[in-house]
Design a binder for these strands. Structure first.
Length: 337
DNA sequence: AAGATGTTCAACCGCGGGCCC
DNA sequence: TGGGCCCGCGGTTGAACATCT
């Protein structure tokens, strides 16, 4: 018999290709795939597709299984905790969707990617900031993340985990505990903020507190948001931005983000989010007080810190939130989150 | 009510890496 | 060592649905 030429193979392959179905999966196809994998397991997708009697290529079967049919796929909207984790991990790893997805059980890389493109990038467009830019990451960390944390608090209050009244001027006491696979960041009058601790998410929140964050750079521009917007509105106008740079008056509270480069273990997540209490005057943060002090003063001893801080300040007295590194008339719409 | 526009997300595509022969 | 195959990843598309005008 004549040998099968490469051309024959290509033609045969093309004929098969033309018979392959594309587009949305039918219930029948889903059923075939589910039952075949239940009996034989997954993998070897091209062979699987043929053996299962599916007129699909292996890639399509794999995608359908991993992104839709697999039993442990989680359905429904991303929770604030999940959104927070995505923002955090993306700021660390960029578009490494599968890597990010590994830390959100039941969520697929495709889902996370879609979330990023449809929600997060939309916000970036509305803010007129290039997503992925330093400015955008700042905005995410300084504004979006705290809002998600606030959402967490609201959700947990709703579930009566810790009945209490919300009081945004309450000081955080930095107490932390680790129970039930959750990291708790709690304070005396609000329910704990919980980060999922799956795959050691944000594990270093339990490590000893790093040194206090530096004061904002002298060239930081601050925007102030009236507290009634913060509390009641889902759509915050940034147009009330202060025109001039201003160091926030203390007392204030901040979230800070530390990138602990001293930690040389193999844990892929090296950062921690912590909520700290500020600190009136005589505690090492005193350089933050007052508008007339040189913002960079008080940095002695911190020059060589291997921490990369981002921070958000809240004035306890005025209940205003002040953000660093943002400018322009912008709108951040929480409705789309 | 209907067409235009915007949004979401399942599915496809191309590419690169790893493995095997 | 190079070619073929498989797998997984990130980017992109387009159908379905929602909202706006």
């Amino acid at each position: 018999m004549s040998a099968i030429t490469k051309r024959d193979k290509v033609m045969s392959s093309n004929e098969e290709e033309s018979e392959l179905r594309r587009g949305p999966w039918t219930l029948e196809e889903d059923s075939l795939l589910i039952h075949y994998i239940a009996r034989h397991g997954e993998g070897r997708w091209n062979m699987l597709a043929k053996s299962a009697g599916l007129k699909r290529n292996g890639k399509s079967c794999r995608l359908r299984w991993l992104n839709y049919l697999k039993p442990d796929i989680k359905r429904g909207n991303l929770t604030p905790q999940e959104q927070l984790l995505i923002l955090e991990l993306h700021s660390r790893w960029g578009n490494r969707w599968s890597k990010i997805a590994q830390h959100l059980p039941g969520r697929t890389d495709n889902e996370i990617k879609n979330y990023w493109r449809t929600r997060v990038q939309k916000q970036a467009r509305q803010l007129n900031i290039e997503s992925g830019s330093k400015k955008f990451i700042d905005a995410v960390r300084c504004f979006w993340m705290p809002r998600l944390i606030q959402q967490n608090v609201n959700v947990e209050q709703k579930h009566n985990l810790s009945p209490s009244t919300s009081n945004s001027t309450t000081s955080y006491n930095s107490s932390m505990s680790n129970t039930n696979n959750l990291i708790h960041v709690s304070n005396s009058s609000q329910p704990p903020i919980m980060f999922p601790n799956t795959s050691s998410a944000l594990p270093n929140a339990l490590s000893p507190s790093p040194p206090p964050p530096p004061p904002p750079p002298a060239n930081h521009q601050f925007l102030s948001i009236p507290s009634n917007n913060l509390v009641h509105s889902d759509s915050l106008q940034f147009s009330q931005a202060l025109e001039t740079s201003e160091v926030p008056e203390s007392p204030y509270y901040y979230y800070y983000y530390s990138n602990n480069n001293n930690n040389n273990n193999n844990n892929p997540i090296e950062e921690s989010w912590e909520v700290n209490e500020n600190c009136n005057s005589n505690n090492g943060y005193g350089m933050m007080e007052g508008l007339n002090q040189e913002p960079m003063s008080g940095m002695e001893g911190y020059e060589n810190l291997q921490y990369d801080y981002d921070y958000q300040y809240q004035r306890a007295e005025s209940d205003e939130w002040v953000f660093g590194n943002m400018g322009g008339d912008t709108l951040w719409n929480m409705d789309t989150m």
